[in-house]
Design a protein around this nucleic acid. Sequence first.
DNA 1: TTGTTGATTTCGCAA
DNA 2: TTGCGAAGTCAACAA
Lengths: 218, 218
Amino acid sequence: MRLVIARCSVDYVGRLTAHLPEALRLLIVKADGSVLVHSDGGSYKPLNWMSPPCRLTEEPGKWSVTNKGGETLAITLTEVISDTSVELGIDPGLKKDGVEAHLQELLAVQLDLLGDGWRLVRREYPTPIGPVDIMCRNEAGESVAVEIKRRGEIDGVEQLTRYLELLNRDPLLAPVHGIFAAQEIKPQARTLAADRGIRCVTLNYEAMRGVIPENTLF
Amino acid sequence: MRLVIARCSVDYVGRLTAHLPEALRLLIVKADGSVLVHSDGGSYKPLNWMSPPCRLTEEPGKWSVTNKGGETLAITLTEVISDTSVELGIDPGLKKDGVEAHLQELLAVQLDLLGDGWRLVRREYPTPIGPVDIMCRNEAGESVAVEIKRRGEIDGVEQLTRYLELLNRDPLLAPVHGIFAAQEIKPQARTLAADRGIRCVTLNYEAMRGVIPENTLF
DNA sequence: TTGTTGATTTCGCAA
DNA sequence: TTGCGAAGTCAACAA
């Protein structure tokens, strides 16, 4: 990794055209050739950048970074404050927890949150237009398709609607009910779901995680 | 801006839980207190970070970054290779070009691309569920709602469908036709649009930008 | 390779 | 301030 503090202007031409006037900035060149232009604020997103795979060609006061898609990042350096390199090695990477997949796991073994006597048919129930997160049967034995999101927005309701429309064409399954389950559900999504006869369920992630389901105790 | 090269492990607890095993990494502390943990690869996205506003408290070998939402980033440093600071000043920022807004501007003054004798009603035509990009009338005087995207995907067709459904309830407007306009339109979006009676129009950004419309010549 | 979905998304605009 | 749509989104995963 190479770190350069320099006064520079930057021009990007690719998926769009963008220009950065001259200013003091941090330039990062990673081992894979990717280049990041950072200012002293904003978020983790660089002001400008080139993603790998790409190639950096360098001449005095002028860097040119190109990828095979024809996008170019041209950096003009007028003053270099520092220019250092360090060998970091390969990073062991990140471990995450708490995503949508986890909500699905948890709900699949806690179907009583939806209703007493409900039975799981299967997770990731396949359809021609994508898998339904959870397919189950209610206490009356009727099919219920459950769509799970971390945040429930209008798109998720549309998605579930498409599943239900398709599934209800199958006389062996119909009637298929719908449940839209999420940690939080936006009012607009809730309204649309109500309009389509889809039940909304708010999931409490902390509470669900705290429960140890019976069938995994041993 | 402060740049630290150090062997460290990182733990984030907040919207999710994540852990980084010990390795040599770049730590960036920006002027606003935000912290970025970068490895020597991947994309422009850090392995881990804390966005501003947040506060860094430091003791030997142990950094703790917290924000007011209660999220914490704990960094344990076992070996510091370098630790430098530099004053960058405020960045003048980025100028962009070529976005959806520009397509909308251009199409609004080049409605002849859609049909002869078409007239603009208004851009950002308001509805209860959001603004229609362009509302106009065709040569027969019928209403046409135009949805503009840079890349036309299925979501955009769904969005336009919702607008049309709503607008067609107004007897003063109905019948309202739909046009889905984009620089490129995915086959799936095209199929869905056809199914809903929505016309697809591919926009040539370069050509549209080259035209100087009559009413702005003087 | 291509498409789809999620993201500690971030960012910008408008109500 | 909040909410919503776009992003040079990126990145993981399935088909």
